[in-house]
Design a protein around this nucleic acid. Sequence first.
DNA 1: CGAGGTGTTGAGAACCATCAATTGCCGTGG
DNA 2: CCACGGCAATTGATGGTTCTCAACACCTCG
Lengths: 255, 255
Amino acid sequence: MHPLIRKISHFADISADEADMLLGLFSHEQAYADGDAVFSADTEQSTFFVVLEGWFYSFSILPDGARQIHDVYHAGDVIGLDHLSWSRSTISVSAASDGRLAAAPLTPARRVMFRNPHLSAIFYSLHMLTNVQLLDRITAIARLGAYESLAYFLSDATARRRMISADYPSELYLPLSQKFIADCLGLSAVHVSRQFNKLIENKLLRRLSRSSIQILDEDRLRKISDYQDRYANLDRHRFERELGRALAGHHGQSE
Amino acid sequence: MHPLIRKISHFADISADEADMLLGLFSHEQAYADGDAVFSADTEQSTFFVVLEGWFYSFSILPDGARQIHDVYHAGDVIGLDHLSWSRSTISVSAASDGRLAAAPLTPARRVMFRNPHLSAIFYSLHMLTNVQLLDRITAIARLGAYESLAYFLSDATARRRMISADYPSELYLPLSQKFIADCLGLSAVHVSRQFNKLIENKLLRRLSRSSIQILDEDRLRKISDYQDRYANLDRHRFERELGRALAGHHGQSE
DNA sequence: CGAGGTGTTGAGAACCATCAATTGCCGTGG
DNA sequence: CCACGGCAATTGATGGTTCTCAACACCTCG
């Protein structure tokens, strides 16, 4: 199943027709190599994207040259939703590993999104989800220590991968440098290294190779950081029931 | 003009009909006193809100009892947009001063929002705006020192008030305790006090009374924190042009 | 073999939290 | 009107957390 549909299926019933209509927008596929830029801040954009494979991330560069990483995107995540509103990007996006994106042109996308009430609600909700996660991340960065903050980052990475492939193993391929994680959490790379090893010392995880680790005690990792899995708590039936009541009798009225 | 319409007018052309339709949803007005709870996390909600007057804020309580404040709402800001997707609130909201809210019931709101493409796009964009601001806030909290972070907070407060009343004076009524600001930025109240006085020392602002200050040098305040006014940069014509192309010929097709 | 990026380790400094004591403000009740 | 109590803000002292700088080990790749 297409990763975007799998992600949406977590909270909404999407019909085969709607899925076709949606996926039909993503006509253009492109491969990226580790480090490639997808687009830069403050440029005109005519598409938005969905991740098919690999790791991508969004970031800003501060006046002093520091990099703040805003979000890490995995398979099924949508990139550049804000282009639907303003075309001009506010952030930059690059590839954190080799991977593939599918791109959808904006004008047809706006037509499909905004004129189909059900798809409109689905995308609205997708967006709401990322918003809740942003609030969680602010809390983690603002209120937790570096050790707990790192536990949060790892909990989030595993939870989000598990959403796309439920049988995701405890071995986590983590192609991210510690500098990368540091730029995500607002820490220094040196300190991330220290806390990382403290997690290993405490037997919460194990290093398998240069770019992969194994989570040994996911429960405790989550408890440490008070991580809340927002995807696992989604109620698909509630979403459709409440939305259905509002849209009753007009489900696919346009086209 | 209704503060919600004034806010929307910053990036979209909203017709009198649409404004009526939208404001018609907010049938119920209610007054709140400083400290009153509007709703609590993890409860069922049947409405969402727009601020008519006063200061409100959203927050979470951490397991250790600490409070993380997520957002401060001023006149024209919408509260509880996530209820449109799931009804169950993920955060708590309370009043930070005396004020008034207008409430809209969810089911009719969903009908109006999702079945009118133009309104749908407007609310989608409203949401996108808060998202960009969240990213800015993460950057400020993660990467800036306490002094700069506080400058960011004050810049944001003035920018958001100015958006509703363009002639907003440099005197800022700030009914927020330093503990409040601390919970917003992830600092301690003691440290906020110190940095606050440092701002005064440096002649960036002046204390007028217990609960109001005057910004003396707004430009420098923004430069310190690299604050970006996302509202001021909105391009209404672009929004309508691009959206119009997508919705061409079907502007108000339902009803 | 050398170059560059990444992770590790140590030492010192900067930043911020915590604790405690004090002040000033304001509303309450005598 | 004044005494009182409570809350917010301030100030100082101390300690913990994290940053920065620097040196080094390791791996990868040319």
